[in-house]
Design a protein around this nucleic acid. Structure first.
Lengths: 228, 228
DNA sequence: TTGTGTGAATCCCTTCACAGCG
DNA sequence: CGCTGTGAAGGGATTCACACAA
């Protein structure tokens, strides 16, 4: 469906625009590399090898080089990668060389916890609005932000130019909230509700599903047990 | 490394023990199917087709059948799957046909939020211990459980027979806590710290990395923008 | 000599297509 | 006839291996 087999004039602009389809696993690894590079900036030397990045990211040197090769060639043969330069490049690639306005929909326990997760702001994700349907919460505040009712969703998101939404509402409310957020122009959703959201293909959704991850653990443990 | 190419007498015991390597993506989909089946039990008929499960799980009918075929053949040709029977089977496979004793290490915002996440208990994950290093928290309680200091880790985990650990401590403390938990006999870790834990190969680790997921979103959005 | 960048080979997952059971 | 179960085909991602640049 929607076959974007675009002409590939290859190597046209190796830096900014990327043409080929990038595996999701590559993106996850880039996040790891970025964190490793940040660590290295404090403690390590000025350059890293793919080998070193591989060890820290629990992958292989070839994988590191292949991952990076999707976006250009950033290393020097015989030397490795300039730590600071590669870090900046990865920030660009991952789109974290800027700040993102985020709205929190659902100020329950999980939502609120996230809100003060320190790692968010350090990456430029800035919470600019909180929405919750609980009348007892509306009007009260969290770290300088007032909690609004769901009826304000459209005006808030549009008015503030929100691009990302953290959706942390009960499953039954999630689909509707997602649709309204998309209609209000948001560009991506981090979804905590344990359902598969139906949104237009151009709106990426990342699912956070803790029960599923626990199930993966109990499967792995049970599995191992029943071998042997 | 560690090549477990085991003899494959094939089809020996199609139900309980499984020999072949199962893709992680299959396990994630099984979780979805399980949830769908639970929904169906309330509202739907007594049987489902792979087609129906595929739609609800956002995959294909062939994929559903292939996923299930790793574990046996649970359907009736021409009919589909018995909803209740398949649900039970999936519970067995995922290891949620029993309860799991879970300890929470790190009672910060994220940790505490999880603790009252309703979906956990409904799947049999039972929090039996909370550990935190903050002297102000130790001795106080959360929903009937007292918070213990890190020095009690070993005795608590062993004494209570804890099998799963939710690790929600700052990155710098995570590796040490993980090692102590493993030494205390736990069997799996749900890790919220943004580092790659080094643990023995027989201890499965599931990483929850929200910053990484946000980065995946900003990448996808930026990516899309720089095409066209 | 060292360590990157990359085609080629390999491995693994998904999709296809159909035989076969109910 | 309907729908599962499954070998075979196909497509992607990882790994290999080496040419090449510093």
């Amino acid at each position: 469906m929607t076959d974007f087999t675009r002409a590939d004039p290859n190597g046209s602009t190796p830096y900014t625009s990327v043409t080929r389809r990038i595996p999701a696993s590559t993106i996850r690894r880039l996040s790891h590399y970025l964190r490793s590079l940040e660590d290295l900036e404090g403690s390590g030397g000025a350059t890293v090898s793919s080998e070193e990045l591989a060890i820290r990211g629990q992958t292989t040197a070839a994988q590191v080089r292949k991952d990076l090769s999707h976006f250009g060639s950033f290393g020097k043969r015989g030397l490795g990668y300039q730590v600071d330069e590669l870090r900046q490049r990865l920030c660009q690639i991952l789109g974290v060389d800027r700040s993102w306005k985020v709205a929190l929909i659902g100020a329950g326990r999980i939502g609120s916890a996230l809100f003060e997760y320190p790692a968010f702001e350090s990456r430029g994700y800035e919470c600019v609005a909180i929405i919750d349907s609980d009348p007892a919460k509306i009007g009260t505040g969290r770290s300088g932000l007032q909690i609004h009712g769901p009826e304000d969703l459209e005006s808030l998101l549009k008015g503030l130019g929100v691009e990302l939404v953290i959706l942390a509402v009960p499953a039954r409310a999630a689909q509707e909230m997602a649709e309204r957020a998309v209609a209000a122009g948001i560009k991506g959703i981090l979804n905590f509700a344990p359902i598969r959201l139906k949104v237009p293909a151009h709106v990426p959704v990342e699912d956070v599903n803790l029960v599923m991850q626990l199930e993966a653990l109990s499967f792995a443990i049970t599995q191992r047990r029943s071998d042997a």
